[in-house]
């Protein structure tokens, strides 16, 4: 087994790790916070207060 074979296994392992990290965090957030809060973002809220678009 040469270096490239080892790198292939390392790449598989890291891929699985990043995927699992994201999924665990997603599940943790979705079960900890109320969904209404998570989807409460509204477009243009800061825009409305910061930039008036008036001449």
């Amino acid at each position: 087994m040469d270096t490239w074979n080892i790198l292939e296994y390392v790449a598989w392992a890291l891929s699985a790790m990043f995927g699992v990290l994201m999924l665990i965090d997603l599940i943790r957030i979705d079960t900890t916070y109320d969904n209404e809060l998570l989807i409460s973002s509204r477009e243009g809220e800061i825009e409305a207060t910061a930039e008036r678009h008036e001449i």
Partner: peptide, 28 residues
């Protein structure tokens, strides 16, 4: 690069998946 170093037939799949997974995690 593996071919230039004498390693033929590299399995590209783990590296393709790693690129997407790592960058998605960074974005996350």
């Amino acid at each position: 690069v593996a071919g230039m170093q004498g390693h033929s037939g590299l399995n590209q799949q783990p590296f393709i998946i790693l690129a997407i997974m790592f960058l998605a995690w960074l974005n996350y």
